[in-house]
Design a protein around this nucleic acid. Structure first.
Length: 225
DNA sequence: TACCAGGTGACTG
DNA sequence: CAGTCACATGGT
């Protein structure tokens, strides 16, 4: 286990970018779709989320005001393919209530808050935890909060990098303390980590041809030496 | 067929 | 504070 310095972290980014290129994650979508997608994707495959988003759009439930006035059971039916549909219907309602009650229905007024205040406000919503809050801060509000998910943890762990602890904030500071706080950089870095984890650094890793093989303790165990 | 997927909150000792 | 559990569908 080693503690990476900023050059190590930057090198990780460069290797992933050279291997996969720009990812264009959630770049052209509305803040509404980014936020709903962030909630629906919790512990769920993105392809299932796309089915739920398509159902919401087809039903003209395409604003937080529309969500707010849609019955819980009807909302749950629409998002059924994304799994955990009863819980997620409540989460969408909780979010819509906050926009209506505290921001006069103006989503932009929430997203325009200073980053720390925005993140704290999001974490106060039932069903919004660290990762979903950071998804919204980074991909909807476009402010530089580094997103940590199970994919990111898996890559960090397999590289043999040691965070200060196992908490979300420990993994987050591993990146945030070693990089310029730049939203496009954080956006691309997280997208690249997820692409790598989804296609190569899978639960059973495909270390043959991995772009990180020579800096990864897991990859080295697959080397003949 | 089991396992996996861009987590979170509630409850227990 | 650290475990453990419920929540649920769809792809491979």
């Amino acid at each position: 286990m080693t503690t990476p310095d900023s050059a190590n972290v930057r090198s990780l980014y460069d290797r992933l970018f050279d291997a996969y290129g720009p990812q264009h994650w959630w770049p052209g979508d509305s803040p509404y779709e980014v936020i709903v997608g962030a909630i629906l994707t919790q512990n769920t495959n993105w392809t299932n989320v796309e089915k739920a988003l398509a159902a919401l759009r087809a039903a003209d439930v395409w604003s937080f005001e529309a969500i707010r006035v849609t019955e819980r059971s009807a909302l749950a039916t629409l998002i059924r393919p994304s799994g955990y549909f009863n819980q997620k219907a409540r989460k969408l309602h909780e979010f819509a209530s906050l926009i209506s009650d505290d921001f006069r229905g103006q989503l932009d007024d929430l997203l325009d808050l200073p980053m720390a205040e925005l993140r704290t406000t999001l974490l106060g919503i039932w069903g919004i935890g660290d990762e979903t809050a950071d998804d919204i801060v980074l991909y909807a509000a476009k402010k530089p909060s580094f997103v940590i998910d199970t994919y990111t943890r898996r890559i960090v762990d397999r590289l043999g990098w040691r965070a200060d602890g196992d908490e979300y904030r420990d993994y987050q500071s591993l990146f945030a303390d070693r990089l310029p706080h730049d939203a496009p950089l954080f956006n691309e870095f997280h997208a690249l980590l997820d692409e790598h984890a989804a296609t190569v650094c899978r639960p059973t890793p495909k270390c043959d041809g991995c772009c990180l093989k020579d800096i990864c303790v897991t990859g080295k165990t697959f080397e003949p030496t």
